[in-house]
Design a binder for these strands. Structure first.
Lengths: 176, 176
DNA sequence: GCGCTGATGACAGTGGCTGCCATCAGCGTA
DNA sequence: TACGCTGATGGCAGCCACTGTCATCAGCGC
């Protein structure tokens, strides 16, 4: 993972071959593919932990919370976890932003996150179509908030940006 | 396009080689790649027309419409265009649903649609963060509505499903 | 009949990814 | 201690998506 991260940063994702990554890591190409399904997956290795935290936060949230609020709580928790990564998330995002292939992979990870979020909401007793809509809307807010947080120079807290974006979404979707 | 569509339908996307597509179409593999950037792109050839229709509808919508309502109008127009395709959209979606690679490509097309939608809203004078949020929320609604429309057997109109989903989203995101 | 242009064929090459088999270190057990 | 098992790795051949390059060829204006 470290070797891949360095090489993607130095020469760009597409200019880096798996052979180079394996070589720097002191392994063979074959072994690389035993650890990662493909060349992109290296950058998304920690996604499961994020999903788990979000789901458990949603499931354990007070029953009094409305679906969209439970989703917000889960995504704020995920945001807090991301922020613990220091400057790594920003560097990772810079690599992703430079490659269409990686953006595709990120989008499907977010779609998987939305699916898990919808499941968590259903576990709270939320029925369709509210579960899917709240999940998709929540992920949409998360995408926008994360994008803002990555760009901004000053050290605003990611969970705060997420919460603020949820409030703005409420206003926008009300049509006012 | 027709050869690819048939083969993807008959044997699945991943089991189909470009050589087979080219052979059925009476061309060489090299010529296939002169018409389509890659093996997936064949299924997304008509996406530009959809984007154009959505954008022009949003730009030309009455100035009195709120951002989310303008987005809804644009996406309903896109839905109407899709519905003109007869049973093709459903068949296409069945192929996509069977392949993770194709789902990735579809998601990035939807992200591109969201970006175009945000631009169209900005052309209406909508400022940030309302433009991005309304665009992302609109695409989220569109995804859900399209998913419902594809599943449902009876002949409900796609634009009507989209409009209904927008209303439900309003309720959900209000937290009620 | 001539030259231009755009589309296609043909071919070699790169690199991501997989299947298969050999090797080897660690480890429990007779 | 020797044996056998297991899990991780190396090595290798091969498939296929995709690209660069050059030759060919049909159409078309002159």
């Amino acid at each position: 993972m470290q070797a891949a991260f360095e090489l993607y940063h130095e020469h760009g994702f597409e200019q880096t071959t798996v052979a180079e990554i394996a070589s720097r890591a002191g392994l063979t190409e074959r072994t690389f593919f035993r650890h990662f399904a493909d060349k992109r997956e290296v950058l998304f290795a920690g996604a499961d932990a994020l999903t788990d935290l979000m789901v458990s936060t949603v499931v354990d949230a007070p029953a009094s919370l409305m679906p969209i609020e439970a989703a917000a709580a889960g995504l704020e928790a995920a945001g807090a976890l991301i922020q613990e990564g220091g400057e790594l998330p920003q560097q990772r995002q810079a690599i992703i932003a430079a490659s269409a292939e990686l953006q595709e992979r990120e989008l499907i990870k977010l779609a998987s996150l939305a699916s898990a979020l919808a499941d968590a909401l259903r576990a709270r007793g939320v029925v369709e179509p509210a579960a899917i809509l709240a999940a998709e809307a929540g992920i949409a807010v998360f995408k926008v908030a994360f994008g803002r947080w990555v760009q901004v120079v000053d050290g605003q807290e990611l969970p705060a940006v997420i919460r603020e974006s949820f409030d703005q979404m409420k206003t926008v979707s009300a049509g006012r």
